[in-house]
Design a binder for these strands. Structure first.
Lengths: 198, 198
DNA sequence: GAAACTGTACCGTCCGGACGGTTTCTTATT
DNA sequence: AATAAGAAACCGTCCGGACGGTACAGTTTC
């Protein structure tokens, strides 16, 4: 995960909590990596703790139950993606910035984050409503796409569907298109975005 | 699952030939319904068997292991979707038939199969490579889209991404767009398909 | 002195799979 | 037509093992 510090770092460092948060982050990361390596069924509390270099008791100190851990994985991943999105949109003034960011985010199909996100998504299926908050987040993004941007509703929705589609295709390894193809598609939709301003 | 037993005299009212494959299908269906109800973790062999009205031994007669069952679920669902797609494309002669079928398939979003497909997809994550064959199938569809249709490559890919995107968004309940929006998007891409023939 | 852990022991549950037995259908032979 | 033989379909139970979670007494770090 990258680009986590959205705001300026606190002037006074917190040595106390730094350790806790770092362990927490390590646990989250370890959980994703375990899922990626051994599948959802292989993600046991014991193995996650071991991978993170923490005892099982230590894990349960941070996450009271497996469910809590899984839900935190989803929230964390989505929040990180949201930050990246905002950051991308921020340096592109003008209408359709968020939609363009949405497409830029999936244009290259970089592997590193995608793999981890896939694991998280898979883990979310462990809990019946594990994707509930994910649905809410996607809904918020769609709303942002529709209202915050001065583009035609249909084209905005198209951008969202293409962005999500590419992202999910990557996530599950459903025969992702090659670099050239995905770039061409993103460019096509971006050009529609620009010419459909209103 | 007790059907009508209107037979009064004939002791053999039903041909028992298809008993095996019927039980198999029932097991597959039961598995999906269990996942939908209780989540991936709730899908145990015992519960699937019970839901299908079969003993656990009977289940294991048809599927040697849980892995086999899960893989069969994926294959079955994908094959079914592929059939629907072909059927849709068959009654639309002319270039871009498959691409249009791809979009028509997800246009309404009222697919009752969607629920079941979601469960199957979730179950596939139980096995590390549970989605391998799914990836292959999607790749084949993409290739069919690219070669079999007389449309521009980029637009064909766009159709695929939009189709998959809508489908996956529905599958995971990631804030699916409303009827009007999705129809508009599908119409838009379809019109691009028609005007981009070559 | 409190937060942030470690380490171990343990419990109740439940799961996947094996296995031996039982019923139902098909086929061959007489 | 009868029946023996055998395969296919299915039942019911048992077991080793692992998992999630609890409890708690110690230890390090700030």
């Amino acid at each position: 995960m990258s680009g986590k510090d959205s705001s300026t770092a606190t002037p006074t460092p917190r040595p106390r909590q730094t350790r806790s948060i770092r362990t927490r982050a390590r646990l989250l990361e370890a959980a994703a990596s375990v899922v990626r390596a051994d599948g959802v069924t292989g993600m046991t509390l014991e193995r996650v703790a071991e991978t993170a270099g923490v005892s099982k008791g230590g894990l349960l100190y941070h996450f009271g139950s497996k469910r809590e851990l899984v839900l935190a994985m989803v929230d964390e991943t989505l929040a990180s993606a949201g930050d990246d999105l905002e950051q991308l949109a921020a340096r592109d003034p003008g209408p359709g910035a968020f939609a363009r960011a949405y497409l830029d985010y999936v244009r290259s199909g970089e592997r590193s984050e995608s793999d981890e996100a896939a694991s998280v998504f898979a883990a979310a299926t462990l809990e019946p409503d594990g994707l509930a908050s994910a649905g809410a987040t996607f809904g918020a993004w769609q709303e942002r796409l529709r209202t915050d941007d001065g583009v035609d509703d249909t084209v905005a929705l198209l951008a969202r569907v293409v962005g999500d589609g590419l992202w999910l295709i990557d996530l599950f390894g459903l025969a992702p298109p090659d670099q050239a193809g995905r770039a061409a598609v993103c460019d096509l939709v971006t050009s529609m975005l620009d010419s459909a301003e209103q």
